[in-house]
């Protein structure tokens, strides 16, 4: 499988990264080079192999239903590029 400029633009859109035409042109061979290389994995026989879930045997632990956090609005908003009236602010979204 290889990518073309349209695919690169599509991926960039999914990843929300603006790309110039020049960048797209450069990315096509770069990504194809990498993808061509990782595609060698296809030759590995994985019949009956389960995808790895936990690299070291370990069990998911659950925590009790207790309120232990929150009420830290200042800390939450402190680094915000734009915060007003206790909210984060973003360019207006039209639905």
């Amino acid at each position: 499988m290889s990518v073309d400029t349209a695919t690169v633009r599509h991926i960039a859109k999914l990843a929300r990264i603006a790309v110039t035409d020049h960048e797209v042109e450069a990315l096509v061979p770069e990504l194809n080079n990498i993808l061509g290389w990782i595609e060698q994995l296809g030759e590995v026989d994985v019949t009956g192999v389960e995808p790895m879930t936990a690299v070291i045997p370990n069990q998911l632990r659950m925590r009790p239903d207790e309120i232990t956090d929150g009420n830290v609005r200042d800390a939450v908003l402190k680094n915000a590029p734009v915060a007003e009236h206790g909210f984060f602010a973003v360019p207006k979204v039209i639905e």
Binding site: M1, T7, I11, L31, G42, V46
Partner: peptide
């Protein structure tokens, strides 16, 4: 983003997790 995108998940990501197990 590409290896997780629709249609490629099994060929890339899932295959990689299997090879990782190996």
């Amino acid at each position: 983003t590409y290896v997780l995108s629709a249609g490629f998940y099994d060929a890339y990501f899932n295959q990689a997790q299997k090879v990782r197990a190996l």
